[in-house]
Design a protein around this nucleic acid. Structure first.
Lengths: 229, 229
DNA sequence: CTGCATCCTCCGCGATACTG
DNA sequence: CAGTATCGCGGAGGATGCAG
């Protein structure tokens, strides 16, 4: 069926409304979040977005593809299959994702039992926590171990690159969080553990203090949200 | 009924997911958009969000209030009634709104017939178009007339303030757009008119060129989106 | 095994009518 | 002016089937 996707729109000529028409539907921005970190296959996305129904994922991918945000291509020789990537337009959503993540992080309560945390989420939340003003001129690299999840951050003269897995040529400091029972491997939990000293370090301790300054925002406007039962 | 709001959640311990749980539902961010510019009453919101069903607006306001984003209060003496305001938490959403608006503006096609544009949207999209690097050190003020909508921008040593209505003590330059038939009074249309010279100026012309530099982004990643029929 | 399509249920949204 | 009440529909959630 090639019926011309009759999406609901807001009938407003406004950038914000347009953005919400394109990526405002349920799960859409989380799909983009995961793809921002690296290309993924269908089943990777299913795992990262625990709980997404298969038909919804399939629908979102088609919509995002038609909107020019996602590209679908068949993977080469080893481990063939379909791989989804962001287009240039899709990558341009990262500042919005980071801004939303900054705000949302301040609204996170305690982790609920059953909550999961995807590695991709951790990377994006790390980027959201980044404070450029504190990083000016710095050059260093960190490897963060959140349970099985390993992510890294590297500063080159104050500029940040970050992603999944370890730093290629070895990090200046490896920080391993000692999570408590039931603490999900989320960036927020990592920061909490770090602040409380529940970490093991492999590298100069001063770089740990630097990390805390550069990669954590003030826990300002936190609130006790009424916990949904 | 006081049933404990059983919102659907993403069951992820991630700032982005949390943000989407709180403001990801239909119309929610547009309500916040309008309230970002100034406090509004119920009927003001209905008008700015043309097409929102009354029960949905009512539901969103309750949810946003319970999330600590919106405050509901009874207005004082003259013109009593209910007025909705953003809390500090709600105001903290502005960077995310601006980032979404920047991205969405690049994805706006031609205005469809029937599309409207709210003054609040124009203000937020103006803020999104602001290029701090181009404004460094500048001090000046502009009044923009988009049909009946009047908004203003004022730079004080590179810092921006903006809002609805004219500048209080008179703008350095008043720019009146000459809209074509059917062009909605959106910021994007204003920029288009300005670029094409369809404006009347009241003030020094050089300030017009400054305006174009400071308040319009490169029309980069535009695309011809398949126009929904 | 991956990458979906299909089926069914149910809730949220849209539209309209009506009330304190 | 500021909502509530009602109803129909479409899309989300969840389970399962199935082709390459």
């Amino acid at each position: 069926m090639v019926r011309g996707v009759k999406r609901r729109d807001y009938a407003q000529y406004c950038g914000i409304a347009r953005a919400l028409e394109l990526v405002g539907e349920r799960w859409a921005l989380l799909v983009v979040r995961d793809l921002t970190v690296r290309p993924r296959r269908y089943t990777d996305l299913q795992e990262g977005l625990r709980g997404i129904p298969t038909n919804v994922l399939s629908t979102r991918l088609k919509e995002l593809e038609q909107a020019g945000i996602v590209e679908r291509r068949v993977a080469p020789a080893p481990r063939r299959g379909v791989v989804y990537t962001l287009t240039e337009v899709g990558r341009a959503l990262e500042p919005a994702l980071i801004a939303l993540g900054r705000w949302g992080s301040s609204q996170l309560g305690e982790p609920q039992p059953g909550y999961v945390a995807s590695p991709d989420g951790a990377v994006l939340n790390l980027r959201g926590a980044f404070q450029p003003s504190e990083a000016a001129g710095l050059t260093a690299s960190w490897e963060l171990r959140l349970g099985d999840t390993v992510i890294h951050a590297r500063l080159a003269d104050g500029a940040l690159t970050s992603g999944l897995g370890p730093v290629e040529d070895g990090a200046d400091l490896v920080i391993t969080a000692r999570f408590e029972e039931g603490e999900p491997p989320a960036y927020r939990s990592f920061v909490k553990a770090a602040r409380e000293g529940r970490v093991d370090l492999d590298g100069p301790r001063e770089l740990f203090d630097t990390f805390l300054r550069v990669f954590t925002y003030p826990q300002a406007c936190e609130r006790d949200l009424p916990t949904p039962r």
